[in-house]
């Protein structure tokens, strides 16, 4: 599994969550503070998760402000010089200064390329997850609320979708769509929405049977209002967990697809494509072209997973009630 690019991450999650994390039960604090404050305090109790969070924040800031931080726009060919190609880390160039992480064959500063690559990876990860979350939640809510044949048709589609490994679906889709950041995002939405649909439906079915929904319906509130104002908020906690981990999955999946040559275009390389481009030079000693982007990719994914793992422990639906 390009690890996180799990085909069935939902499975891993739900299986682990369903099997219960019993000790977490005992850890559930009974103090009467606001839930958010309690969450924040519990979260910070785990230092790996805290480190993860800090790393994510730092990376996010760097990625957002990349154009003002890095020395070179790696996508502007006019700023590159192939005579500076494949220089080792720390090499000095008269025109440019110091290439701290070396250059690739086009003379692209690897540090700048990695920061810009991070931007693309984070963009693809977060946008695709956000869109998939919206689509999936809507489908899940509708299925749970209306039930009957609507439910069974929608869930059959979800089943079918989930029975295909994400990597395979995305690979075929992108082979058909062609390269492009937008196309990768669309493909990732298509392979991800079903996880949320299933998760939302699951929690919504539980909530649906509760009195407050009956009460809302009896009050004559509109369907949409019941769905989004009452049902949805109560289904959110497990979604937050899935979405967090799923951002890591999406980033890894994008990297894998780009590595296979069906992801982002070569002129705007993401981390995965940088690794792929550098691969053939790695064995002949020019490790930096591939190695540093790889490290950046792994750090991002590990950080997100650390946070997600902690959130899963804290937001486990079982210990909420």
């Amino acid at each position: 599994m390009s690890a996180p690019a799990s085909d069935t991450p939902g499975q891993g999650l739900s299986a682990a969550a369903a099997a219960g994390e019993p000790e977490a039960l005992h850890a559930a604090p009974l103090t009467a503070r606001s839930p958010l404050a309690r969450l924040a305090r519990d979260f910070c109790a785990s230092w790996p998760a805290l480190i993860g969070l800090v790393v994510i924040l730092v990376i996010a800031v760097v990625a957002v402000f990349a154009p003002w931080i890095v020395p070179q726009d790696p996508y502007d060919l006019a700023q590159l010089d192939i005579m500076d190609g494949t220089l080792p880390p720390g090499a000095e160039s008269y025109a440019f200064g110091t290439y701290w992480l070396g250059t690739d064959v086009q003379g692209r500063d690897m540090l700048s390329a990695i920061v810009y690559g991070l931007r693309i990876s984070l963009l693809v990860g977060s946008v695709s997850v956000a869109c998939a979350l919206v689509v999936g939640s809507a489908v899940g809510l509708v299925a749970a609320f209306f039930g009957g044949s609507v439910d069974s048709v929608l869930m059959r589609i979800v089943d079918i979708q989930l029975s295909f490994p994400a990597i395979l679906v995305a690979l075929i889709l992108l082979a058909i769509f062609g390269n492009g950041v937008d196309k990768v995002i669309v493909a990732l939405i298509i392979v991800q929405w079903a996880y949320y649909a299933r998760a939302v439906r699951g929690s919504a079915l539980v909530e649906r049977r509760k009195e407050y929904i009956d009460a809302a319906v009896c009050l004559g509130l509109g369907t949409r209002r019941v769905l989004f104002r009452h049902l949805l908020p109560n289904c959110l906690p497990p979604l937050i967990v899935i979405a967090t981990v799923q951002v890591a999955h999406a980033i890894a999946l994008e990297a894998t697809l780009s590595f296979l040559g069906v992801g982002v275009p070569i002129t705007e390389p993401s981390l995965g494509l940088l690794i792929s481009n550098g691969f053939e030079y790695m064995m002949s000693g020019r490790y930096w072209i591939s190695f540093f982007p790889g490290v950046a990719l792994v750090v991002v994914i590990v950080a997100i997973n650390l946070v997600g793992d902690r959130l899963r422990d804290l937001l486990n639906p079982r210990l909420q009630r």
């Binding site: 502007d76 060919l77 006019a78 590159l80 010089d81 192939i82 086009q106 003379g107 062609g178 390269n179 275009p265 070569i266 002129t267």
Partner: peptide, 19 residues
Amino acid sequence: QAAAQFLSRIGIETSVDAS
């Protein structure tokens, strides 16, 4: 890409569409 780089330097702002 290298050719595009050279063209960019004489003012032809060139990008590469690889597939």
